[in-house]
């Protein structure tokens, strides 16, 4: 019961001592967008971190870039396109769906499906 009501009842006290958010958004929706976008983009400097988490200066610049674009009303797709135009699909942790990545997206499910089908076939054939 201790955990009750902690969350989503966040009240930001606006006392004079309150620290300011580094990326201050006017709506929680924009804030979620920012969190989502930065976490799904790969940092190109230390290549196994996302932009949200990386301490590399470039990641900071890109966070700032994304922040500004959200503030100026760009859509997620526009922001992603902006980055892909400059850095290529490598920057996307969610690979785009295209001719080259069909195998990536479908093969696992095809394997699961054929595995289960074979299993059923195997058990039933010699009954």
């Amino acid at each position: 019961m201790r955990i009750i009501l902690f969350l989503f009842t966040m009240v930001f006290f606006l006392s004079c001592y309150a620290a300011e958010d580094i990326y201050h958004f006017s709506s929680t929706e924009d804030q979620t967008r920012f969190a989502m976008l930065t976490s799904e983009l790969r940092c190109l400097v230390c290549q196994n971190q996302n932009i949200a988490e990386s301490n590399a200066p470039l990641a900071g610049d890109l966070r700032q870039q994304i922040f500004q674009q959200i503030q100026t009303g760009h859509s997620n797709q526009e922001i992603v396109d902006f980055l892909v135009d400059r850095y290529g699909n490598f920057i996307l942790y969610r690979p785009p769906f295209n001719a080259g990545t069909i195998g990536l997206w479908f093969l696992p499910f095809i394997l699961l499906f054929s595995g289960i089908s074979y299993l059923v076939y195997y058990i039933r054939k010699k009954r």
């Binding site: 976490s39 799904e40 790969r42 290529g88 920057i91 942790y93 969610r94 785009p96 080259g100």
Partner: peptide
């Protein structure tokens, strides 16, 4: 998969948590 695409000289991609 990224190695497959790179070996085929196709584009370079990243596969991460969202995938």
């Amino acid at each position: 998969y990224p190695i497959v695409l790179e070996a085929l000289n196709l584009e370079k991609i990243s596969v991460g948590e969202p995938y």
